[in-house]
Design a protein around this nucleic acid. Sequence first.
DNA 1: GTTGAAATCGATAACGCTTTCAAATGGAGA
DNA 2: TCTCCATTTGAAAGCGTTATCGATTTCAAC
Lengths: 346, 346
Amino acid sequence: MNLKEFSRILGLSQTTVSRALSGYPEVKAETRERVAEAARKYGYHPNRAAIGLATGRAGAIGIVFRGGSEFGPHTSEFMGGLGTRLEEDGIDMLLSTVDSREAELQTYRRLAASKRVDAVILHSPTMEDDRIAFLTQLGLPFILHGRTESSLPYHFMDIDNFGAFNQAAGYLADLGHSRIAFINGLKGRTFAEHRDQGYRAAFAERGLSVDETLLGNGDFTDEMGFRLMGGFLDLPERPTAVIAGSMMSALGAMRAVRTAGLKLGKDISLIAHDDVFPYISADNMVPTVSTTRSSIRAAGVRIGEMLHDILAGKDDGYFNDVWPVELVLRDSTGPALTLPAKAGVR
Amino acid sequence: MNLKEFSRILGLSQTTVSRALSGYPEVKAETRERVAEAARKYGYHPNRAAIGLATGRAGAIGIVFRGGSEFGPHTSEFMGGLGTRLEEDGIDMLLSTVDSREAELQTYRRLAASKRVDAVILHSPTMEDDRIAFLTQLGLPFILHGRTESSLPYHFMDIDNFGAFNQAAGYLADLGHSRIAFINGLKGRTFAEHRDQGYRAAFAERGLSVDETLLGNGDFTDEMGFRLMGGFLDLPERPTAVIAGSMMSALGAMRAVRTAGLKLGKDISLIAHDDVFPYISADNMVPTVSTTRSSIRAAGVRIGEMLHDILAGKDDGYFNDVWPVELVLRDSTGPALTLPAKAGVR
DNA sequence: GTTGAAATCGATAACGCTTTCAAATGGAGA
DNA sequence: TCTCCATTTGAAAGCGTTATCGATTTCAAC
């Protein structure tokens, strides 16, 4: 069923039907209703390719994943939020997977040239990210989930990673911990750098010095958490607290603590960053885990909103959201019992 | 840049250029090469909407997620595999999220009517799944990841869930375990039913009877694993072994076992189903976990292949893949020490 | 009744590609 | 040199929308 036939059934011109369906004002309310109902009845949906050709808009946004392995739990949650928001506007999400950075840029070029998408969403930025310049020059609208260092203006939405980990480290320090291990994310990623800076700033503010041997980087897996934490616990002066960049690595770290025969919340304090996954809850851990908390799903929804505004053309200036992060205290954090270096007394 | 301008630059007709780019045989190899190179040089990519309009093909496949929350780690892995395969054919993946079953069907109708996708991929089937009949009647090609009971023929790709859990339960039973708890997936889902059947069959084959109080259903989260296992351990006659439907629930179950002061692999044996996530490895648990193992990513790749064949029109008959599942033994399984019912001795 | 403006509606030209069918070109054979 | 077939190229007709105008209807006010 196409517009021609559909409008013939209705006894209206294609123009009127098209206008009625797209909600243009110059069609009588009664006519519009009649058209809408008929569309429902006959299951008429305009051919998307034809709309695209006529309007120049694709009605879809693109997201590219590197390696496919980049498609982790964080991504899923984010997409869930983004998708629910985009659904409202009838915008679809187009996914691509590539195996290299070069291929990623190539994909953007293809998506732009072939007009498959109206905009793309960037994620996992590094401190210096060539995609900003590339896409700006390409003229393909984009929003970055995260931040990067760039002289060019661009839309982004990020959480206050600096503040979150500054708070976490500061809180632990104020509990008397001075040897605070840090299981951070992948080196080079902006969020990991910001977290690192926040951590260091907390120490600096208190006149404490950072022990570099207590810092580790890696992807957010249970395994990485276990390995890094195991290493920290083997140090001559083990840490009395640890900050984990994700619930996954926290899980591994907790395992390492238990394996070492230590008690969480007592011998070792833990604060983890919680992206709020429905299937891993800090409240259900034993002990419950103190977290810096920020829903990655909510971030997806927000970016969907931005996208809506940008595609509707009402983006005067650039969206530059930075969300504060909440520190939620639970049972995994407590005062430093054993003061390292000099033998501590209870 | 459009075809008209691009072909003018080349001094060829639109027809020839189009044919050269699409690999038609009636264009001289030399011409084809010249066109291909120019396309690269000028970054020409045909407008996808125009192609779609002219050919009637969308060049994309659709996947619908309910609730957005359905978008868990299993899905991500699957999509990663699927995406890498589809990439080869230049087929994009179109994602939609909906909030009800009704909306899901509605989305399929929209995708089909508006010709946004050439096929869809179904997942998370229940034993009786109305989507098969719906899509068959709609005429929208589809592949089901999983299986369902249907009188209609359809393409599917599934793993041998029956066999996997039959093997797992059988192996534990042969080690002397008779009280084997089972943390299964969501009730109603085909895979969970098949696993249940496999479990029961293992008992039946050995003349053992199944204790229904040791069976639990739930989603694949750490929390659910913890809760269900906790319940089992509180029973007057606790189980001596447990089978978990996923690594997530296994993680929770392990936590419950430890919390109860029991030792894994000794007091309690564990077999978990491993979908092979890169970020949670059975080999890195303490103790290492015996698993029934089947890469969900590989399943994605396979379905991508099927899709390729179906869209190329070379699907004589229906794809009905069922993959065997491997039982990998590690340290979490051991002989039953305490025989329940009569007081066991250590 | 008329009139004129406002409210509706419709014919038709894009949009950028594929594909059909016809035309041109090239080379082999006579 | 000419004819004829095979190879290669081209002109033009869709594909199903939207958007631009121009045409028609409606209706209040005279």
